[in-house]
Design a binder for these strands. Structure first.
Lengths: 200, 200
DNA sequence: GCGAATTTTGCACTGATGCAATATTGCACG
DNA sequence: CGTGCAATATTGCATCAGTGCAAAATTCGC
């Protein structure tokens, strides 16, 4: 149980994961998500169907594999924000701090294209965002100093998820990461302004 | 294609639906959701397994069958709010107006108990709330007069869903509908106040 | 090479869905 | 009344998604 097994093993696992992810994205773009079976992906990646689910928990999960790493990063960035910041500000900054890592991910353009094209994937991202929210709740409750089951941290986390989700759905990938950044900023501005109708 | 078929047919369908719902709730409470198969439910209700999915789209969906009717009601209540009300206020009032129907539903107490007891069900309610949000987006975009893909209505709908979800999760059913009402009020107060830290 | 740890795989089973066949019900007409 | 037609509900079947479990294969450290 020595934390990280040998570098060799780690590398092979990473390769398999990447092969599955690449095959999934490629096939999804070619034929549409619903026309691709897990078996198709696995044949392309030369592994058995069962193995796929050792790496991803759903057929579509290969598309947002970044969520795992990024949500961890978001959580630690939030925990690192100074305690004098109001909660919503801390959340906003933490998200700002995490966005560069999002931008550094390979293939976000193709992924966003898939999300825009097939609405059935939207429900999947909801679940992904929801899992991040669950992490944030605990950190927020700790930060604010109230029981974990309280309304306020629950609402804060959910609202943050809403901001990201609304921004991501609205986002046109042609506008690049800057465009996404701007939408997230707008969303947080709306939240901070009590969601009153915009001037425009 | 005469809209509502004969009353006879309608009645039998309602009976089957109710039988499935009752069987599901009873068995879930007795053995826990994961220990009950769709087949178990169907044997108890004397129909085939396939029929279950003609009525509900997932095993757990029988628990929040009310969502279908209530979300329609919420949508129409929102559409009925006067146009001079700020969007968030209209949403809040619409939800207030819908809550009595929620209270009138049979068995919400048992259902909430199930939700509290088994966390795996929480992800299911997310999907249900998400579907309501999708309805609200269109109505809100229409009301505000901006394109359906805009950020603001998306965010409004998502935030409203967040408010309900946070309130519902936090809710202790012993406090009755009044308790839920109070939590929803609090959640909307938070949203209207820009989610700034509460005085307490 | 050997033993231990870990990864991969096969298998059985449940959840979920589309499709086509079947059964049931309502209704009109003789 | 009852008989047949049309609408609709139910069911079986095939298939895919997803998961736990245990056997098998692979790799690591020695």
């Amino acid at each position: 149980m020595q934390g990280a097994t040998t570098g060799h093993r780690e590398r092979k696992k990473a390769e398999t994961r990447e092969a599955l992810r690449a095959a999934a994205i490629r096939l999804f773009l070619e034929h549409g998500p619903s026309a691709v079976t897990v078996n198709d992906i696995c044949e392309a990646a030369r592994v058995s169907a069962r193995t796929f689910f050792n790496y991803f928990e759903s057929k579509e999960a290969a598309l947002f594999a970044w969520d795992q790493r990024l949500s961890d990063e978001l959580a630690s960035k939030l925990a690192a924000r100074p305690s004098y910041e109001p909660p919503l500000t801390a959340l906003r900054r933490a998200m700002d701090d995490t966005l560069p890592s999002f931008a550094a991910q390979t293939g976000w353009h193709a992924r966003k294209k898939l999300f825009s094209a097939s609405p059935e994937l939207r429900t999947k991202i909801v679940n992904a965002v929801f899992r991040v929210e669950a992490m944030l709740v605990d950190i927020l409750a700790d930060r604010i100093g109230c029981p974990a089951g309280s309304l306020y941290p629950q609402l804060l986390a959910a609202a943050t998820g809403s901001a990201f989700r609304a921004a991501f759905i609205t986002w046109k990938p042609e506008t690049g990461i800057k465009g996404l950044q701007a939408l997230i900023d707008q969303a947080f501005d709306h939240l901070a302004a009590g969601l009153s109708a915009p001037a425009s």
